[in-house]
Design a protein around this nucleic acid. Structure first.
Length: 102
DNA sequence: CAACTGACGATAG
DNA sequence: CCTATCGCCAGTT
């Protein structure tokens, strides 16, 4: 089953606009729990497949992709770049330009 | 009910 | 910038 939290998180993720990204902590905060970043992870794992979520627009607080190489990293990066999101020399995303502000 | 688990976050070295 | 730790929270087993 999916708790209210999870639904809220799913809802928020679905509202991230094209070409923008959001941090786990940010989403958690919008869902009502600034410290529940890990629940965002769980929500993605449980619903990314069925819910049609833009999971690739969710990155960690360092502006980087959390997935390890060969385990989804390339896919996420490709998806983001196809939306116009650029990475700097340290593989980080420029929040000033791409961070979504709810 | 206790232990375990994460695509995390902040801090320290 | 990088790794190592500790703290956090809800869902599973």
């Amino acid at each position: 089953m999916v708790s209210t939290f999870q639904r809220e998180i799913i809802n928020i993720i679905q509202s991230i606009p094209y070409g923008k990204v959001a941090m786990y902590g940010q989403i958690a905060a919008m869902a009502g729990n600034p410290r529940a970043a890990r629940q965002v992870v769980r929500a993605l794992h449980t619903s990314s497949e069925k819910e049609n979520l833009p999971w690739h627009r969710v990155i960690n607080g360092q502006g980087k992709i959390s997935l390890p190489l060969g385990f989804g990293y390339e896919e996420q990066r490709t998806l983001l770049e196809s939306e116009g999101v650029q990475f700097d020399e340290n593989d980080r995303i420029d929040f000033a330009r791409y961070l979504w502000k709810g």
